[in-house]
Design a protein around this nucleic acid. Structure first.
Length: 610
RNA sequence: ACGCCCGUAGCUCAGCAGGAUAGAGCGGCGGUUUCCUAAACCGCAGGUCACAGGUUCGAGUCCUGUCGGGCGUACCA
């Protein structure tokens, strides 16, 4: 049950009964323990619009409120707050519900189809740190939305169609073709047999290959001509060689991406890939549709859409260019096609069996204007029905310790694979230092989960809107709001279950206890604090999903861990007896499952032992 | 030049629709191991929320302006 929403609804109804219909109750967790568990701030606002005394209105709302089943105390305070203290019985009942539920009593909001567009690497190059935030944040959002019961459609909009592929194919051609004959002729474009050779070629270092190709492109005019021919051959579909080689290249590059996803624990697979090339056939139709709506205008030889709300320099109208003066299409055109596809055409053309109710674009915040334009044009063109929500989930840059964009010591881009290896290496050193007695394979396994988890958590725990400073020392610290700290908190709880010899050791991922062992009784203040935190899991998830802010879940986790530590210090578990012992064990188990589920929704693994 | 975002403790950041005495972590100082993992826990110090006005019973939060920073602004993605 979403406590906050429930209180919000109940008090909203009470406000209406008290003569302030439509006024939100504005319920929040209490700012201070002395104010109870939740506070409603909406009465004062309502009093203002009604021009009445807020204290008197608070009394009226209180009289009209139906909260007997939830609260043991509701009292007006200060200028017109309503302070709510939940009843012990209610807390115990709700804990029992959560303890018996593998979804930890999270509600299932109205099911929507949510497209999450994330990661989107350029297949011409190797994945680097620039792809990390989109990949991690997008995957966490997808998991959270999925858990809430939505139909989540992951979309990996990979870059697989630019002119840069001509360059790569030309370089590939150069490496494999007869050395004496540089120029590719028209007949060369019809050589499926050579594709086979390329198909079998190993491509161990995508980045190096790209660099070499770029070098050749920059220094050799003949090379440029070949790559131009190959692009034309590829895009027109007239060259079997270009097409075959391109397909082979894309396949190899995607295989590399999938290795990265596997290692990161990111749930993106080949069926989620709908790259730029996929929308190629839709591009002319986008132009036609825009034209039919009278939105298209030619300017300086390019096909543009001008909208009043976008102004450029000096108040000049700012175009959204959908077709270049040379006839080429752009990013905006592809995005329009993708949007159309997701909201309507994909289903209409029977290519997919879904239609989006909400589309999230997880890309860096520099693309904000681009998406505002694309969304506006799509609406105007009728590609997207009104009820469909389009959201750009922007995020800031990753900076190094020096506050500058994150680079290697020599100023190069950091490959994702190298970064993940470094994370594991650093984590292994830490584990070895802290737990030298564990066997090496186990230390390796801990280091993997901790290292990868640290990189992900550091990113997710930050508000995505701002740039964030990447620091190995901070993310791998056991102190503060970090992955290792959360993993450690989990491992500590699990050790209680190992230690208690009579206690049934169960794997929490197997689900909740269904026996009467799960009866929870709230006696001590520390137990109460923990109980309230545990019951705030549902509202946290819904807030994180609504705002696309995974850091809310991280913050919750940290508060939950803090509440557990208070309990752990003050309430002996194994040393207590009878019902108290059973109740505290049940609290431990529920806490462990909540931490595990929260971390899982962030894409982070838990460990039984550290 | 215009537009968007940002400016909170020495550092890295929270602060959810304006609400009660602005919160964490790191770093600093001090304490806790006959006690379920001390990779932990607890305490102390540290802030005119960039600055100046305004709206309001009430502003870190909303409005205006100034200063400082980042990003973006017609054929890259």
């Amino acid at each position: 049950m979403n406590l906050r929403k429930t209180l919000e609804e109940r008090l909203g109804a009470a406000l209406a009964a008290a003569g302030a219909p439509g006024s939100p109750a504005v319920v929040k967790p209490a700012a201070r323990a002395q104010f109870g568990d939740y506070q409603a701030n909406g009465v004062m606002g309502a009093a203002k619009t009604l021009k009445t005394n807020p204290r008197q209105l608070a009394e009226k709302v209180l009289a009209a409120a139906q909260l007997d089943d939830l609260a043991e105390k509701v009292e007006p305070a200060g200028p017109g707050f309503l302070n709510i203290t939940l009843s012990r019985k209610f807390l115990e009942t709700q804990l029992a519900v959560a303890a018996r539920d593998d979804r930890l009593a999270a509600d299932t909001p109205a099911r929507r189809t949510v497209v999450v567009d994330y990661s989107g690497p350029n297949l011409a190059k190797e994945m680097h740190v620039g792809h990390l935030r989109s990949t991690i944040i997008g995957d966490a959002l997808a998991r959270i939305l999925e858990f809430l019961g939505h139909r989540v459609v992951r979309q990996n909009h990979v870059g697989d169609w630019g002119t840069q592929f001509g360059m790569l194919l030309a370089y590939w051609n150069e490496l494999t073709a007869d050395k004496a004959r540089k120029l590719i002729s028209d007949s060369d474009l019809e050589q499926p047999a050579r594709v086979q050779a390329l198909h079998e070629m190993d491509l161990p270092d995508l980045e190096e290959f790209y660099k070499q190709a770029k070098k050749r492109f920059d220094e050799d005019a003949e090379f440029r001509e070949i790559s131009r021919k190959l692009v034309v051959g590829l895009q027109s579909g007239k060259s079997k060689f270009a097409r075959g080689a391109w397909e082979s290249f894309i396949k190899k590059s995607l295989a590399h991406c999938e290795k990265v996803y596997d290692r990161l624990g990111v749930r993106l697979g080949s069926s989620d890939v709908h790259g730029e090339s996929f929308y190629n056939d839709y591009l002319p139709r986008v132009l036609e549709a825009l034209s039919a709506k009278g939105l298209l205008a030619e300017s300086q030889g390019a096909q543009c859409v001008f909208l009043d709300e976008f102004k450029g320099k000096d108040g000049e109208p700012l175009p959204v260019i959908v077709r270049k003066s040379d006839g080429g299409f752009l990013y905006a055109t592809t995005d329009l096609a993708a949007l159309w596809f997701r909201a309507e055409r994909g289903l209409a053309d029977k290519k997919v069996d879904w239609q989006a109710d909400r589309v999230l674009y997880v890309t860096d915040s520099r693309q904000e204007l681009h998406f505002r334009q694309v969304f506006a044009v799509a609406r105007r063109a009728g590609f997207v029905p009104e009820g469909v929500s389009l959201e750009h989930v922007g995020f800031g840059m990753m900076l190094g310790d020096d506050g500058k964009p994150f680079k290697t010591r020599t100023g190069g881009t950091v490959k994702l694979m190298d970064m993940l290896s470094e994370a594991e290496t650093r984590a292994f050193e830490l584990v070895t230092q802290k737990s030298p007695d564990l066997p090496e394979p186990q230390r390796r396994e801990i280091a993997r989960a901790v290292g990868i988890g640290a990189v992900k958590y550091a990113d997710l725990s930050q508000n995505r809107a701002t740039d964030y400073v990447f620091s190995w020392d901070k993310m791998l610290s056991l102190e503060g709001n970090t992955a290792p700290y959360m993993q450690y908190a989990y491992a500590r709880i699990r050790s209680i279950f190992r230690k208690g010899e009579d206690v049934q050791i169960r794997n929490p991922s197997l689900g909740p206890a269904r026996d009467k062992q799960s009866e929870i009784r709230i006696e001590e203040p520390a137990e109460r604090v923990l109980a309230v935190k545990l019951l705030q899991f549902p509202e946290t998830l819904e807030a994180a999903a609504a705002e696309c802010l995974p850091n809310l879940l991280c913050q919750y986790l940290y508060e939950l861990a803090g509440a557990f530590m208070g309990f752990y210090e003050n309430c002996p578990v194994l040393k207590s007896e009878g019902d108290t012992r059973a109740s505290r064990l049940a609290l431990c188990e529920l806490t462990a499952r909540t931490i595990q589920k929260s971390l899982d929704l962030l894409g982070i693994e838990t460990l039984e032992q550290m």
